[in-house]
Every structure is written in structure tokens, then in C-alpha cells.
Design a protein around this nucleic acid. Structure first.
Lengths: 247, 247
DNA sequence: CAGGTACTTTGACCGAGATCAAGTGGAAGC
DNA sequence: GCTTCCACTTGATCTCGGTCAAAGTACCTG
């Protein structure tokens, strides 16, 4: 019940972020053990938080901003394998080193816990272990959904998929009645979108222009997006399921 | 310790399969609670085990044969999102219905547990929950590795990636000294490979022929593969990391 | 305000892989 | 032995998205 306030509630009056993750951000926090091992870290846009292979002595969750998990081949080809939005969890209990580059895509604040104490606590707090399992399973579903996007969708469908995921995730913050246009700022550069979608930045730019021409989306400047009809966008994405995780 | 025999050992003298999963297959089993809720199911190649969206009242692990997790779009495009080899876990505690089609790619035997009792047991057996978390994290890593394959690799690299993963997984069953040629039978049709790699079956066929011509692999018939030099194959895959999960 | 930098757009061209279409080979059934 | 079927191979052609190149735009900084 109180524990719930720490790691399970999805909206909290005392803080602006959603806690899907294990994060003792808000003042209701009564789990003192968590409190003693947590700390905050800030990063600037573009900063690398961890390099793949580096030792990683903490776990944590995103408080504000966006981070990305990226894999790189020797020849420089890169693929983003995860997008971490506020409340998403970072790190892997039971693993010494990072498996991916973690990069701050925007300015970023993270709430961290030192790994060892966190793992200890997981050992005698089954609820947290259970919650972590659920979150990991959600991420697995998201990754697999993305495999369909990467493997089988056209460039246009890929863009539409990404936009509709961001739109829905964004809309869920202020679910003011499910209808009406959705407005948001793209938190990603064209290049980051390309890395996520397995495209080149030129193709991303072209397809966004095409969607704009067809009035599926409206663009103000380069980043400010209005989606007049989310249904039409999802049609473009080839998405019938109203699922759509983003990690 | 005894529990270990049930779900943690990776090789067991009494049975031919590896237990990476929670499976009470071997006779050493002393966890009677697990014993009482387990049962076996057999499937023929091509048979669908569960359809996406169907209620799913069990979890389990593959004993022998291969199953695949598949997603399908309305227009028929399909993407395989996971390949389940012996010892891999199927099903998701805490979810009512299946998220993907699960299909027996070859003849298949599964070891199943009814979901509710299994979940109950997880509640008071933290080791199993912990083990399940580790396995899920492994699967997540595998899925993300595959995102790089789907998003950024060429057809030839994709084929080489798949072959080297199967080869290494296969070789690990009989690690007779790490060197020498690796021999195995492809457990997948060209079409299944295409669905896994995000290609068409024609392209798969062409690239396999090309790898054969270049002596990276040897083919006897259509399925029997010999890999004279796994290092060369991994080079073709663009893979420097010697990682390589298959779920 | 000029100049620089980072991000984005647009155009022209090309090629990897998809698509369409035969054709091959081996195993099962009659 | 012959047909049928299925998995696979191979060829010809087309197309989507990549590549290379050039501009355009917004935001700094001096």
C-alpha cells in the first residue's frame, strides 16, 4: 500500500512524472531503505551515460527527458534498440556491465540506485522483484513489436508507427477525453528516428514530408507536430492492434 | 540445492535435454509441488500451439523440437519474433492471453505447467521468480540483438547471423573442443528463415547459394549444413562480439 | 549583423532486395 | 513406374530506399 506509492502508482499528485518504474521520487516515499541508496544524476542532450561493455554499478529510472539504448557495428552502422521515456527503467540486476550504449537524447534526469544494495533489497522484497519482472516482460513485448516494424514495414509505415507510439504515449499523460488533435514536440532528431527505424535520415525526412503533404500530420517548424486524426495515422502504420508499447 | 536440480542445472545425466528453463523433466525432481502440476504435450510440425489473442492457461518450456513466435499483419506480412529451442520458456505469468502466434516449427514436445498454480508457486518461491527474471532479461537481450540484424544488416549478413547463432547453439550441446567443422541440419524451411530475417524466401535461397559458392558453408541436400570455419561465418555476419543468444 | 554550426530538406541516381515466373529435385502415394 | 506435391532454386525485371550532393533554415556567438 505504501510501497505502492513508491513503485507502482502511475500518477502522483506530488510530482509531475509518472512512476511506472521503481523510483522513490515523490515525498510520499516511506520505504526508507530505498531512500538511503537513491541519488539523482543530470545529463545534457547528446551525452553518453554508459558505453556498451563498461562496468555499470547502478540501476535507475528516467525522471525527465529521453534516453536511448543503441548498438553499433564495427563499421559504424547503428541501431537504436530501445527508447527510454520518463518512468522507464535502466539497468540489469545481476549483470556487471552494460550491454548497449545509453545516450541522453535530450537533457535528462535520472533517479539512480546503487546496484548492489538494490539487488539486496530485491532479494527480500518480492514485490519489487515481481514488478521488475512485469516491466521486463513489457519491454520484451515492445522489442518484439518493434521487430515487426523493422522487419516488415515500409518506410512510410515505420514513420507512422513511431509517430503514433509517441503520440499515444504523450496523449496518455493528459487523457483529456480520447478525441481531438494530439499535439507534441518531436523529442528526436531525424537521425535518431532513422537509427530507431532502421532507415537513413534522408528517407525519414522525405517520408515526414510526404505525411505532411497528405495531411496525416501537420508540422510547425521542424519538430512541432499536430496529429488531427490518430486513427488515420495508425492506419498508415498498418497497425490495427491498439497496443503499442514504447518499451 | 535440490531446487537447483529442477530449474537451474544446464545438464542432467538422467535426461538428454538442457534445462535452462523451469522444467521438472528429470527424475531427480524433488519439488513435488511442481511435479503435481506439470504435464507434457506433443505437437506435429506446422501445428499452431496458440493463436495470438487466445486465452492461455499454461506456461511451459520446450523439451524437444523448435517452436516459433510469430506476428502477422492484416495483409499477411509476417515476422517471426522469437525462436524457441529446447529449454526455452513459453508463456507469461500475469497475462491472460497470448501476444503472438506460437507455432511448432518441427515436431515438438513441451513440458507445461498450469498457469495459476505456477504463479502461486512463484509467489512463495523467490528463486523461481528470480530465475524467470534472468531468463526474461536474456530474451530481451536476444530480441534487441535481433533488432540490429533486422534494422541494419544486409541479406547476406542476416543469413550468416542466423546460421552462426544456430551453429553456436548447436555446437554448445557437444562442446568437443571448440574447433573443427560444425555440422547440423537446418531446422527451418527457407520461408521460416525469411520470416525470421525479414526477407523473402527467394532472397534467402539466393544468399545461401552464394555462401555455398564462396565455401563459407557446405550444403548436402537442402538442409544438411557443414560449417568448416565458424570464424569466417561470423565475419560474414558482421559480428565481432562472440555473444549471440537465440532468445 | 556576419559567420558558423547543427539540423533538415530536396534532387538525381543507383543498387539490393522484392516481385513475378519458370523450372528442378526428391519423397510420398497410387 | 508414374504422378503429384512440396520445398527449393534460378532468372528477369522492377522498385523502394540508400547514397551522394547541394541548398535551405534556425540558432548561436562574436
Amino acid at each position: 500500500m505504501t510501497l505502492k506509492a513508491v513503485y507502482e502508482h502511475t500518477n502522483c499528485d506530488d510530482c509531475p512524472i509518472r512512476h511506472r518504474a521503481v523510483c522513490a521520487h515523490c515525498e510520499k516515499d516511506e520505504l526508507e531503505e530505498l531512500e538511503t541508496i537513491k541519488y539523482y544524476r543530470s545529463f545534457e542532450a547528446g551525452q553518453t551515460i554508459i558505453w556498451s561493455g563498461d562496468p555499470m554499478n547502478f540501476v535507475g529510472s528516467v525522471v525527465s527527458g529521453i534516453a536511448s539504448l543503441t548498438q553499433t557495428m564495427e563499421d559504424g552502422r547503428t541501431q537504436m534498440v530501445g527508447l527510454l521515456l520518463p518512468s522507464d527503467f535502466v539497468g540489469r540486476p545481476g549483470r556487471e556491465s552494460a550491454a548497449y550504449d545509453v545516450v541522453a537524447t535530450t537533457d535528462l534526469v535520472m533517479c539512480c540506485f546503487r546496484k548492489k544494495p538494490f539487488e539486496d533489497m530485491m532479494g527480500h522484497t518480492p514485490h519489487i522483484a515481481h514488478r521488475l519482472l512485469q516491466m521486463t516482460l513489457d519491454e520484451l513485448d515492445a522489442a518484439r513489436e518493434w521487430m515487426l516494424v523493422l522487419g516488415r514495414k515500409t518506410a512510410r509505415e515505420k514513420i507512422a508507427s513511431l509517430l503514433s507510439i509517441i503520440a499515444r504515449r504523450d496523449a496518455s499523460i493528459q487523457p483529456k477525453g480520447m478525441s481531438g488533435p494530439i499535439v507534441f514536440d518531436l523529442p528526436l532528431t531525424r537521425e535518431a528516428m532513422a537509427d530507431y527505424l532502421g532507415l537513413t535520415l534522408e528517407t525519414v525526412s522525405r517520408q515526414i514530408s510526404a505525411l505532411k503533404k497528405d495531411q496525416i500530420i501537420l508540422l510547425e517548424g521542424k519538430r512541432h507536430v499536430t496529429i488531427p486524426d490518430i486513427g488515420r495515422l495508425m492506419e498508415e502504420a498498418g497497425d490495427d492492434t491498439d497496443g503499442g508499447y514504447l518499451n
